[in-house]
Every structure is written in structure tokens, then in C-alpha cells.
Design a protein around this nucleic acid. Structure first.
Lengths: 353, 353
DNA sequence: CGTCTCAATGCAATCGTTGTCAGCAATTGT
DNA sequence: ACAATTGCTGACAACGATTGCATTGAGACG
């Protein structure tokens, strides 16, 4: 049997073949219980035979809503974001939704234009890794279901899927402290995003719990979430006088970790012998590096999947009260962390301080 | 001024405010030259004021075509594919098109379902990294513009954007030969995809040009395009008797390179001292590894951008004859390749062979 | 001055689907 | 046997934009 040419078969073609009205065909497909069993089966058979594919444009127009959900992330080249995207797509796929990705590169203009495009498609809902601008942007789509992921925009009654950042950071510090490190630095991300603030909080909590004092110089903020900022931040740490120089570094996200690595590589500092390193976000390459990286692994795919599931509940029932879900992370121990060198070695230069 | 609620303003709202018919408003927006200048300006002002956003569902329904282009790739987690996606999206963004990504994981079922979803959206065109199944699948959408990228499906009169794989491989072999390597192995991808075949051809050409004999055992096919296959292939190479064991390996894509690395790491073989390594596809982490990787860098973003541009020409003029565009690659020399050890070192164990 | 042309605009049909309403036949209750 | 109910179905009017055709009025020209 010849496959029909793409997209040419319509409801009324089916209706004609089945000797019923288009209404009945439509019902047979969307409300099977409102159609006689025999009719239903006959129609389904013909639909199959003619390879009918509903025109979602017409459907969306009529229903005033499409089966499209938007996903706004900063950078699809970032493993963490890409994995979230996969999780979202897997969930959407099962429910028959289509995902539209928007790569904003942290640029509010692009974010705005993408939201407009989505709006033109009468999208059903949105999953977003919010930036500072997002809150204001989202206000325009107040009636649309939104799930935030990774960070929180601070919108009231929002639905948010987060990693347990505080606990993660505490675990990292505990691990390093146990290895004998006392001078532990943090290369933080932007403090204005909740993720950065929480991770910093966890770091401070962890230090306190380990009974370690925090030198303000050890907190090196990376201006942006990119490799260059990480590089600069680590450079600043390396300029500290020997007695204050950290023996371990905790980098708050994968981009920044890359920058830190480059800085260490350039300064010919051996990891972990001269400097222990812990990163946020796992990835294929973190395992393959030499040394392989000790990292906090976030359940990115699950976060994406959960966010999508939450979004679908929200689409079905828009009045659900806001929720915040926190997922546990896993500290994956690899080769980039090791016991601190003997106190002699590290204190020999501390006469400077 | 209050922003209107998302999506509620329609053509007739504008028409009413401007004291004209909806036809005129529509024309003012899509065919400005068919409307009096004064009317045009007045309408545009009102459109602006009321924040009108066209309903693309209605438009698509009427025009029987949407402003959506599909992009089918195997794995968004693969840097090469993700970069292509970015290029495509950048080009689409400028033209007002929306991109729908399909992650197939090389699964024909997923590919088929994604094409169906696109079809239901009356997509305007498709960019695809074809698999073996694609040719057959695409036959159903004969009237739809398609651009193939990275590989060729073998469809007649197809539009294809490729990297110059043969030349790339030859350059790799020449580089290794110049470093004194004679036993150069190739961890190939699937030979049934054109990319794999071409890279293999380039390897063979390169060896011939360098005056080097090829031991069939040096050609280690990776069953699939994934890390595990690369690992296994490298394991097989390492089992070769010392006299036949390669001193350099050329891995045909980035996934496979990862597997090769893992295998080498497990066998505690030093790169590049004991084994030189060249990979295909550059990425952020290839630069940060220790040693950093010598690779063939494909212009992935440009490939995506070009593919999209080609697609738009094709949408405007579907009868353009097929074209094949080949882009040059760049061999990026880094730390993973080095001169071969002295003949003594490598032949000392060759008594076994 | 009458007719012809042409630019500008309006009218109305249409794209394919959905949902409301009403109608019809068969079944049930009395 | 008749009314009430129930189960299916069809007719029809949207949804919002586009577009071929008809209409209008102003200016050109004989």
C-alpha cells in the first residue's frame, strides 16, 4: 500500500471513507468513550490505513493552545544544561509534547525574543533556568504554567526543582577537611543567583562545622559563569602569599572548573599533589581527565524529567500551589583530591603571613 | 502602559482600533507595498502599542506551512552535534524560523516519531545528520526541503554539507609520519556511514603517501559511535604483539576518542610518550585534558549555519538542483602527539613478533 | 465631462479541528 | 403503550489569519 503524501490526509477524508461526520472522527480520536465501539474501531482502522496525521496547527488554533513546551537554558554546550534538556525531552516525548529549546547565552534580548516566539506558538508551558531578568519577563506570562529549574527566580508561588546545594557544598568541605586541608578556597559563581548563594552558604557552614577559619581571600568570585572568569578567579587565588595560599579549591560549576584547571595548568601546579580540586557537575570528560575530577554530581537528567512532569501536572491543573523540590546530589570521589602535604611543607613559607 | 495579557490581541483588535478591515492589517504586516503609506504607519504604531503577536498557528493553518524547521541529530550531549545545533539556531533566529530539535540516540523509531511530529506541525524544512535508516524515512517527505549534514544518506539530488574528511585524515597521517611514526592505527567508526568510509580512505591514502605499509590489525572498527566501542577497539589494538603494536592511534570521532583514552588510562600507557593520539572533533575539554589533545577541528558551527542557509534557499526555491558542499577542517596540534621513541625502545620487545 | 485606470481597501471564503447543541433511535421504567 | 432516559451522531459555528475577487474613489486622458 502506498504511503500517502505527507500531510495531505485530513479529518474529512477519513470521515468520507468511514461514512460519518468529521465530528465523529474527531471524537473517535480524542474522546473514544463518546463514540460507539464499532465506529471507533472502524475509524481507527481507516486512520491507520490512510496514515492520517492530525494537523496540530488547526488543533492548536481551535483549542487555543498547542502541545509545545518551551525550555529556556543558557547554553546547550554546557553538559549540565544539555542533560537537563534530555530529561525534559524524554518526559515530553512520552506525553506527546514537543519541546522547543531556547539558547539564551545569558542574553536577556534573546530570552525575550524566544519567549515571544513561544507565545506566538501558544505554548502550553515553560521550563526555565532563570536569570536575573527572567522574573520580570515571566510576569508577562502570568497565566502560563512555569517550572524553574536549577535556580530560583524568587517569583512567588513558583514551582522549582533544585539540587541540594547547601548540603553538597558542606559535603565537599567535609571531604577536604578530612583529607587534612585547612586552607580551602571557593571559586564562586555569581552571588546573585540562588545557586551561587546556596553553595557559598554550604561552604561557610562546612568550614564552621570542620572548625576551620575562613580567610576572606579564599572566596574568589567568578564574575560570570564562564571559563574565563574561572581562570581569572584562580589566578587571584594563586597570587595570595604562600602562607595564605589555599591547598584545595572548590569550583562552583563546570565552566568555572575548566577555567580553574587552565590556570593551574599554566602555573604548572600539580593536581592533586600541590592542589586538591573539586568541581560541580559531572560529565564524561571529568572522568577521563588526568587526574580525573572529584565532583558533585547533580542528577541533571532527573531534574529535567521531574521538571517536565511537574509542568504537565501544572498544565492539567494550573492552580496547584507552588512547590520547591530539592534533589540530593552525589559526591563522586576521584583523583583530583588527595591528602594535604605534610604540615612542614605548607608552613615553611608561612613566615610571610 | 500596561502590557496586554499574553496572546490575547488579534488582527481584528488592531483592525478595530485602526478603523480598517483585518485584510488591510494583514497586508500591512506581510505585504507593506500593497497598503497606503499612511495606513501602514498608523497600523504599525497600533501594533506596537497593543503588543500584537501574530498567531502562528492560524497563519500556518492558512498558509499550509509553518515557520518551523526540524533538526535531527543523534545526541545533543555530543559537542559536535550540539555545536551544529547552535549554528542552525543562530541562522534560523535571524530569519524568524523556529528550530525543533530531535534527539534520536540513533534509534530509528525515535527518528520516525520525531519526523511525524514535525509533519504534524507542517514543518517547512529539515536538517538532518542521516543514519542508515534515514534514506527510507525521508522518502516519505519527498516534497519537503532537506539538507543533510556531516554525512550523506546517498539520496539522489540531495543537498549535503560535509567536512573534507579525506583530506583531514591524510593530514593526520602525514603529521604522525613526520613525527617518525610508522605503526599508525585507526579506530574507525561504522564503515557504513560515509564519514567513516571517507576517513578510512584518507587514512589509507595518507599511509600510502607516507610510504608506510598498513597492517590490517591496525584498523580497529568501533561497532557504534560511542565510548564503549572505542574502548573495546583500543583494547584489541593493545592485544597486538609488541612488534605490531601501533605507536600512534587516530580515533575517528570524539565519542570513540573518549573510549580510547579510557583504555589507555586503564593500561597505564602514557600519552604521548608511549602512544600518540589524534582525535576527530575539537571541544573545550580536549584543550584542558592533560595532555591536551591533538585533533581535527571541524567547523561545526559553520556547518550548521550553512546548512540552515542552504535550507532557506531551498524553501524559497524547492527546485534547486542538489549540491554538495565540503568545508575544510583544521589540524590542531597539541600535546597528545610526539615524536616516536627511539627504534631501540620500541623494537626491544619485538622479538616476540 | 465621461470613461478608463489603478491604487487602496473591504468582503467573504478558506485552512483543519473542536465543542456545543440538537436530533434521532433504542432502551428502560411505569 | 407511552414517556423519559441514554447513547450516538451530525450540523454548524467558531479559532485567527490570509488571499482572490469585488468595490470604491481619485486622477488621467481624450
Amino acid at each position: 500500500m502506498r504511503q500517502s503524501i505527507a500531510g495531505s490526509v485530513t479529518l474529512s477524508d477519513i470521515a468520507e471513507r468511514a461514512q460519518v461526520s468529521t465530528s465523529t472522527v474527531s471524537r473517535a480520536l480524542s474522546h473514544p468513550d463518546r463514540v460507539a465501539r464499532a465506529t471507533h474501531e472502524r475509524i481507527l482502522r481507516i486512520v491507520e490505513e490512510m496514515n492520517y496525521q492530525p494537523n496540530v496547527l488547526a488543533r492548536g488554533l481551535r483549542r487555543r493552545q498547542s502541545m509545545i513546551v518551551g525550555l529556556v537554558i543558557a547554553d546547550i554546550l554546557n553538559d549540565f544544561h544539555a542533560t537537563i534538556a534530555k530529561g525534559v525531552q524524554d518526559a515530553a516525548y512520552q506525553r506527546g509534547y514537543t519541546v522547543m529549546f531556547g539558547n539564551t547565552d545569558e542574553d536577556p534580548m534573546r530570552e525575550e525574543r524566544f519567549l515571544q516566539a513561544l507565545n506566538q506558538h501558544r505554548f502550553a508551558g515553560l521550563i526555565i533556568v532563570p536569570t536575573e531578568r527572567s522574573r520580570e519577563l515571566l510576569a508577562r506570562y502570568a497565566r502560563t504554567p512555569v517550572v524553574e529549574i536549577d535556580r530560583s527566580s524568587g517569583r512567588e508561588d513558583a514551582h522549582v526543582i533544585l539540587a541540594d546545594n547547601v548540603a553538597s557544598s558542606r559535603a565537599v568541605v567535609a571531604h577536604l577537611a578530612q583529607l587534612g586541608h585547612a586552607r580551602i578556597a571557593a571559586v564562586t559563581g555569581s552571588r546573585t543567583v540562588t545557586t551561587g548563594a546556596e553553595r557559598l552558604q554550604g561552604y561557610l557552614d562546612g568550614m564552621r562545622e570542620a572548625g576551620l577559619a575562613v580567610d576572606p581571600g579564599w572566596i574568589a568570585p567568578a564574575a560570570r559563569h564562564d571559563e574565563a572568569s574561572g581562570f581569572e578567579a584562580m589566578q587571584r587565588l594563586l597570587e595570595l602569599p604562600a602562607g595564605r595560599r589555599p591547598t584545595a579549591v572548590f569550583a562552583f560549576n563546570n565552566q568555572v572548573t575548566a577555567g580553574v584547571l587552565r590556570s593551574l595548568k599554566r602555573a604548572a601546579i600539580q593536581v592533586p599533589q600541590q592542589m586538591s580540586l573539586v568541581g560541580f557537575d559531572d560529565s564524561r570528560w571529568a572522568q577521563l581527565m588526568t587526574p580525573s575530577l572529584t565532583v558533585v554530581a547533580q542528577p541533571a537528567r532527573d531534574m529535567g524529567y521531574l521538571a517536565a512532569e511537574r509542568l504537565f501536572s501544572l498544565i492539567a491543573n494550573p492552580d496547584l500551589p507552588g512547590t520547591v523540590t530539592r534533589l540530593a546530589t552525589r559526591l563522586v570521589l576521584r583523583e583530583s583530591t588527595a591528602a594535604v602535604l605534610s604540615a612542614a611543607g605548607s608552613s615553611s613559607a608561612s613566615t610571610v603571613g
